Simulated scan of single mutants.
Amino acid sequence: MLTLVLLILNVICVLVGVAFFTLFERKLLGYIQLRKGPNKTGFMGLLQPFADAIKLFTKEHVGPSVSNYFPFIFAPIISFFLALFVWSCIPSYFNLMDFELGVLFFLVCLGLNVYGLLASGWSSNSKYALLGALRGVAQTISYEVSLALIILAPCFIVQSFDLSSFQLMGGIPLIFVFPFSAWIFFVSALAETNRTPFDFAEGESELVSGYNVEYASGGFALIMLAEYTSILFMSMLFSVLYLGAVPGSFLGVFSFTLVAFLFVWVRGTLPRFRYDKLMGLAWKSLLPLSLFYLVLVVSFLVSL
């Protein structure tokens, strides 16, 4: 019973965090672009995320008449479920589960995410949605490879796949030991979560919103919730892996907020890549560098 209560509490905290992160992003992008952002609904716009949620979930559900109905309905639900499920491997003061293989669990959930994305595009029975889904899946799979390899180097150092082990490094954050690894992880996290400058799966200017073009109301809201939940999770994972933060502590909250701020800052600063440049960065730059980094760390450990 206690585990169920903690699980529900965890989900509620994540959803509230997503709501206010969207507000934080819109306000910050507004000030970057010399405008105010949401400031009408509630005090300083604080109720804007809740107004958006009520609007989306109370709108009429409209879908293509020739879509594959059940995959079309369940694809956003699957994406949202996986985005919430992966949070259970994050160590905290009120752990839901004791994960000795938390890193592997995260990588498995990350790999399953592509099925929700592909199902969304394919089941829409629209050429634009399918093209967006194929581009998104190719991008996600490409960056998963370098992301998995770059995470292995810190795992070999701490000799564990348990995320709580990264907080026991003698008070030295791994970002000072592996600054290059942290940079590759952050770039791969941007690509994994379809964020600018790698937001090709939903590039509005050339893809008509990509794989989610046929979604409206609740389905669109679930897709956006899954995306922003993944962004917050990547921010938390970065702070745990490379900053040695304990989720729930003051340092944990500060480092998590700092990384989430970087996600928004990058969006407000950098233009979108060209698609061939994106794939070239993954296979010609990040993958060889990740392999070299991993071989270097293993060689160092073997020589000790």
Rank of each mutant, 00 (worst) to 15 (best):
I73S: 09
L104W: 06
C109Y: 03
S290C: 10
W122Y: 13
M169K: 08
E204G: 06
K127T: 15
G280A: 06
S299Q: 09
L262M: 11
F166L: 02
V295E: 11
F176Q: 12
L243E: 08
K40L: 12
I151F: 13
P38S: 08
V187E: 03
S67R: 06
A189Y: 05
L4M: 13
L46N: 08
N212C: 14
W183R: 12
L232P: 00
N194Q: 13
V18N: 05
E204M: 02
F166V: 03
F261Q: 09
L222V: 09
Q139I: 09
E100K: 11
F72H: 12
G17D: 07
L278E: 02
L258F: 11
F72G: 02
N39I: 09
D276E: 14
L28D: 07
L34H: 15
T269Q: 02
L291W: 00
L46K: 01
Y211E: 01
N68I: 13
M234N: 10
F74P: 00
F70V: 14
G111H: 03
F200C: 00
T196A: 14
E192V: 07
S249G: 08
C109D: 10
G102L: 05
V11D: 09
P64I: 06
G170D: 01
R272Y: 02
I90T: 04
P288S: 04
G171K: 06
L6G: 05
S230C: 08
G45P: 00
P288N: 08
F273M: 12
T229V: 07
R35S: 09
L241S: 01
M44E: 14
T58M: 11
G17Y: 08
Q48L: 01
I141G: 10
A189N: 02
S230H: 14
K27T: 05
S124F: 04
V103H: 03
G171T: 10
F85K: 10
T229G: 02
S188N: 15
G136F: 07
V66W: 13
Y215H: 11
Y293F: 12
L118Y: 13
M1A: 13
K27M: 04
L147E: 06
D52P: 02
Y242V: 01
S290H: 00
W87C: 00
F250H: 05
F57Y: 11
N68A: 14
T269C: 07
S205G: 06
F300C: 06
Y69W: 13
L304Q: 14
L190K: 03
F250D: 02
F186L: 07
W265I: 04
T257V: 07
F43R: 12
A75M: 02
L243F: 12
L291G: 08
Y242W: 09
S123A: 13
T58W: 10
A191P: 04
S181E: 11
K284A: 10
Y128C: 00
L104E: 05
F300R: 13
L34Q: 15
L118F: 12
V246C: 04
S126K: 10
V302L: 14
I150N: 03
